[in-house]
Design a protein around this nucleic acid. Sequence first.
DNA 1: AATCGATGCGTAAACGCTTACACAGCCATA
DNA 2: TATGGCTGTGTAAGCGTTTACGCATCGATT
Lengths: 342, 342
Amino acid sequence: MTIEEFARLIGVSSATVSRAIHGRGRISPQTRQMVLQRMEELGFTPNLHAQNLAHRRSRAVGLEYLGHTEVLSDMFLIALARGIQRVLSSHGYNLLLNPVGIASERESLLRRWTRSHAVDGAIVVGNPDVPVDWLQKLVGHRGFCVVIVHHPPPPVVNVGCVTLDLSRGIAQVAQMLCAMGHRAIGYIGSIQPDPVLPMLCGEVQTRGGVISERHVVYAGLTPGDGANAARALLGRLPRPTAVFVRTDVLAVGAMQAIREMGLCIPTDISVVAHDDVPFAQFTDPPLTTVRVDYEELGKSAVEMLLAMLERREPVERLRTVHTSLIQRATAAPPLHHTPYQN
Amino acid sequence: MTIEEFARLIGVSSATVSRAIHGRGRISPQTRQMVLQRMEELGFTPNLHAQNLAHRRSRAVGLEYLGHTEVLSDMFLIALARGIQRVLSSHGYNLLLNPVGIASERESLLRRWTRSHAVDGAIVVGNPDVPVDWLQKLVGHRGFCVVIVHHPPPPVVNVGCVTLDLSRGIAQVAQMLCAMGHRAIGYIGSIQPDPVLPMLCGEVQTRGGVISERHVVYAGLTPGDGANAARALLGRLPRPTAVFVRTDVLAVGAMQAIREMGLCIPTDISVVAHDDVPFAQFTDPPLTTVRVDYEELGKSAVEMLLAMLERREPVERLRTVHTSLIQRATAAPPLHHTPYQN
DNA sequence: AATCGATGCGTAAACGCTTACACAGCCATA
DNA sequence: TATGGCTGTGTAAGCGTTTACGCATCGATT
């Protein structure tokens, strides 16, 4: 059913129906009520494409991410997408997914999106090599907006940015461990460069602890890497009484290696990890880890984008999401120390 | 840039440009090449909404699922969505997500989708209480198509169905376990009714094994439930030498309980689970489990939908996806038997 | 040379909505 | 009673495509 047919059917013009739908323009409250009610009764819904064409917008935003990724970065995407989807659907927007294989596709796909008016704005996640001048060009056109997730903020109008600040969670780790009485703390990293180690070092030192260079090992990405790292780290005596592992996935392997060395978690050695992936609550014992709230990240990003799209002011162009420690069962005071000694 | 502007710019009419784009209608090969090349150069992309309006379709399909679900049914959704997305984007279609909170929203949301022409078809996942007559009404209109995932096939034109058949994987479990020499096999179920137990019983029996009633326990959904079930099951002597656990999540808890009882996996007891969730490869030892290929399920669903939408014949209206066993490290021959004895 | 079908292209009418503008009715003012 | 503003509604011109139709042009047939 078209708006014209429907309008004739209820004895008004299409313009009146349109005004009733949008609540804009001059229309009497009674007429509006009547129209809305009869819409409900007769089941008329305006054609989305015609609306979008007339409005010159699409009420949709795109999510651009690197597709074909590994399981765990999928996990992170899921949560992000869920946060985005929630906000979006409550605003009547649609979400278009755009997995890109390699970074260079990004440009052409995003360009096509904007030129075809498929989306009003986009959220692009975490590619370190988005050229700023390219964004500038893209965005300059027709009020298109972009929000970048997990990226330093570019100085471009209509580009927003939400970043993740890991320092809060890291500080909480240091605080907990030191309060428990740990002094010598080990570190298993993932990939370099890694801004987390200096953070943790600083926090630990101000609380009287120390991360000795001998107790720092860099692993890779898999549980196997974590196991190797743990073996290397704990082979060097004296051992730390606690070890921070950069990711939960590494930690799973590390814990396994630790058990195989005949050590008990957390009594012999405490383990604290990072990310809080879903299976972290299922390890044995359940993993104490830093939660990264990707859902919140998505929510922030899309809220920012919508604000920019709808020209509500003032728009904050930069927002930061923090992390926080989730205490489960892999961290405890070391055996030879009184807890809370300092 | 509009098609009109672009056409003038390159010295033809908008009709010619349109014909070049679609490769339909009477147009000389040279002109077509020229137009396409200049499109590339000048960066012209047709307005999607205008196209959709003129074509009376949207080149988009919707995915309707129960939102706000738990972590693990999310896992399943992810994989499903990935499978769908892959096929879709290779056909130039977009995917619209539609999480619904409760089953009753399903109807109104889907109706709105169709009436607003937001999508050409939909994939609705796994709600047992979709009324068939409602589907019939929905689908009757304008060649709208629906594919249901994980649902018995309804006898409605333009409704397809893809289901999951667990029997293959279950048969493989029985075969492996019996070939290893296990005779007494235990079963930890999740929620009743459970069609898997009879399947497994049958397969095991034909191979000379047995699932005694005393070795069947029903647990719930969480690892804790799995632990309790394992304790109950293994408390009853004589013990089975292998146990099948209905879900990986339960299995995690069960394995923990088994370890706490001083038993070793797989030497003292073999554990085989079902689902192959991502963390199954990270348990200790890595879990032997039945893989459910949700990505394949999604792929099948969307391929069916696209075939229906594009009226390609013959269209299979029902398709089944099978499961298969993934052997990792929690199943081995029992100690007192020679492997492959039969 | 006249006719004809085929071919390549342009013109203009949809597609279903929004909205600027015009207009009629109405009340208040001069 | 004329004037003017205000209000509610209808008319029609967009929005940017697609496509039916018509009109040249051209080579092949009579």
